[in-house]
């Protein structure tokens, strides 16, 4: 039968804490506690400017989350079609999907953001928020496509043959048999991409989208408290990604082998 322990390695997400690391002082716990202590003590012992920063940035956190979740949802859809396209036997579809992945992976996200907002923006008016979501989706759609492709390819060929021999068409086989199984393999790397994407949303601050980083910059330019502001922004990002990586690790844990339901 198929190997139940297939894992797809993805490079740029945060470290996902392992639940098998039993120590009280594992890296995740120490970092999280350190972060919380830092934030709390800075706010208590030096409320000016740290408390003021904390009060200034929540709108930014909301925008950061909005960009993250919208981009994730859209890039999952783009990714599914890209992954299927990369596996297609139709040479044209396959080529289009492969070129898309090659092009996107070869251009820095920041350049893509500039390109969509400023370069394409010179032809038609585009809202910064829309440009941000579009760029993130186009970029992460390509990465997600590779994750989907790997996930689908990890399913044993015998599964396809069994489904086809019963009379299922190609698309029914994909939909009823392959993708439901691939989801389990795909979940951890998708979680990883999720965290990487959240961090990368900080780039959209360059397009005048008032995300967490942008709000921090606004505060810093008003008060000249650069050191304090960016210290707090870094700590806030760190806390968000730590919590997210924990959620991903819990999800990963819940994806049990089929015989443990």
């Amino acid at each position: 039968m198929r190997d139940k322990n297939i894992k797809i390695e993805v490079t740029d997400g945060a470290a996902i804490p392992s639940r098998k690391d039993p120590g009280l002082f594992n890296a995740w716990r120490v970092t999280l506690i350190g972060t919380i202590i830092s934030i709390v003590s800075l706010v208590i012992f030096k409320p000016d400017p740290y408390l003021r920063i904390i009060k200034f940035v929540p709108d930014g956190i909301i925008i950061t989350f909005q960009v993250t979740f919208l981009s994730i949802a859209l890039s999952l859809i783009v990714g599914l079609f890209t992954g299927l396209g990369r596996l297609s036997k139709n040479r044209t579809i396959n080529l289009i999907a492969s070129i898309y992945v090659e092009v996107i992976r070869g251009i820095p996200l920041l350049v893509q953001l500039f390109y969509i907002y400023y370069a394409l923006g010179s032809f038609f008016k585009i809202h910064p928020f829309t440009a941000a979501i579009t760029a993130m989706t186009v970029c992460y759609g390509a990465y997600m496509g590779e994750v989907f492709r790997a996930g689908i390819q990890s399913i044993d060929k015998g599964q396809t043959e069994a489904a086809r021999s019963l009379g299922f068409s190609k698309s029914q086989t994909m939909f009823y048999v392959i993708i439901p199984q691939a989801m389990r393999t795909i979940l951890p790397p998708v979680g990883n991409e999720f965290i990487a994407l959240l961090k990368d949303t900080s780039l959209v601050s360059i397009l005048a989208v008032s995300d967490l980083l942008r709000r921090g910059r606004e505060f810093a330019t008003q008060t000249f408290a650069y050191f304090e502001t960016y210290t707090m922004i870094a700590l806030l990002y760190l806390m968000i990604t730590l919590i997210l990586s924990k959620i991903v690790s819990i999800l990963e844990e819940r994806v049990k082998p089929y015989d443990q339901k």
């Binding site: 039968m1 198929r2 044993d156 015998g158 599964q159 043959e161 069994a162 489904a163 021999s165 048999v177 439901p180 199984q181 389990r184 089929y258």
Partner: peptide, 11 residues
């Protein structure tokens, strides 16, 4: 059709 490796749907 019956296969050597069964190929049941594990999910």
């Amino acid at each position: 059709m019956v296969f050597q490796n069964f190929n049941l749907f594990p999910h």
